Amino acid sequence: MSKQRKTKPGALPICKTANKVLWQLLSAKIHSVTVAEKVLREGGEDGLHQFRVALRRLRTLLRAYRPQFDPGMKIRGQLSTLASSTNQARDLEVLVGWIESEQVDSGISAEILATVVVNLRTLDASDPVAGVDGTAISKCWASTSKKLSKRILKAPRDASVRFNLVTSDLIKRQSDELLHYLRLIQTAEDVAENHKARIAAKRLRYILEPLRGAVEQVTPLLPLLTCLQDELGVLNDRAVFVERLEQYYRGLSTLKLARSMTQDRDPTAGDFQVDYIAGAVLQLTDRAGVERRVLFDQFHADWDSRLVNLAKQISRVAIALINDD
């Protein structure tokens, strides 16, 4: 019989039944989302980010442990709606931050960059899907969290399945998915594969995080996964920048055509000349594309040699969970 590892006080009781441990985890994640939603609702700093991360952690556990507990299609759909309602707003904030940081290196005047930012925000605000409706989010979360908590309390308890064994198998499958998508990223243009690898890394990390203190092999693995997720995220952001800027440029081209047809060519009409703004947008688009290619080359050089070590560390966690049974 394998000797059980000593766990730190307050660590997750991983050798108990899967459902019992899962209820503990889900209750904690629901509370985290509720706290983050309050910060978002009250306009607190970084409220949007806190809410998105807390919600992702909850959804990851619900997805991963669905065989042990399924809240139902309706609740899953409501959680998905909550998550998607903040996507474009987050992407815009990251894009705006990058544009503002480009002033010195790009050589584009601060005034034109400010106009680009204002126009992007205006376009985002005009999209009914893009903006963050804090009131709607609050109402949706209040209703969804209440239903989810009731489902957890009423769910049947299965004493035959141990949490550590379920989680060990889960980690193996999530690791296989992550490594599969990482191997598919061969060029800077493999945007879809990059996105899937980033999601897989994030899900694996969120599954592993609650095991800290209970499985010692998790501690050195989490920073590695965080680094991988962050680097994949930066690559994905650059692809999003190019997409959003190209969309903006197409809108400017349409506006330019409309102005030429009405012969409204007065440069003092109150806005910057469309040509100047379009030129700045093209320059920013090109810079984002170049950055992505440079970042990809760095990523490929770094992680080609680190994937074997990553796979070994994940495997050690999965084995340790089985040995704790």
Rank of each mutant, 00 (worst) to 15 (best):
298 Q>E: 13
196 K>M: 10
192 A>I: 14
211 L>Y: 03
35 V>D: 10
243 E>P: 11
37 E>Y: 06
255 L>Q: 09
136 A>G: 12
48 L>H: 03
26 L>G: 00
128 P>G: 08
150 K>T: 11
101 S>F: 05
33 V>D: 01
121 R>F: 01
66 R>G: 04
41 R>L: 07
88 Q>E: 06
297 D>G: 13
179 L>I: 14
320 A>V: 07
28 A>Q: 08
51 F>P: 01
234 V>N: 06
41 R>G: 08
48 L>E: 00
145 S>I: 08
313 Q>P: 01
186 Q>P: 02
167 T>C: 05
83 A>P: 00
150 K>L: 14
262 T>N: 15
264 D>A: 15
256 K>V: 05
270 G>V: 09
232 L>D: 02
263 Q>S: 13
23 W>R: 05
4 Q>C: 13
83 A>G: 01
269 A>S: 13
217 Q>C: 01
75 I>R: 05
171 I>F: 04
109 S>E: 03
271 D>Y: 06
158 D>I: 11
315 S>F: 10
292 R>D: 04
312 K>C: 07
261 M>I: 15
212 R>Y: 07
211 L>N: 05
196 K>N: 09
111 E>Q: 03
256 K>Y: 03
285 T>I: 14
63 R>G: 02
96 V>H: 07
27 S>P: 03
146 K>R: 12
295 L>R: 15
267 P>H: 06
248 Y>Q: 07
51 F>W: 02
64 A>P: 01
314 I>R: 02
104 V>Y: 05
136 A>P: 09
232 L>G: 00
188 A>F: 04
278 A>W: 08
172 K>T: 13
264 D>H: 15
203 R>V: 11
25 L>F: 00
206 Y>M: 04
255 L>D: 07
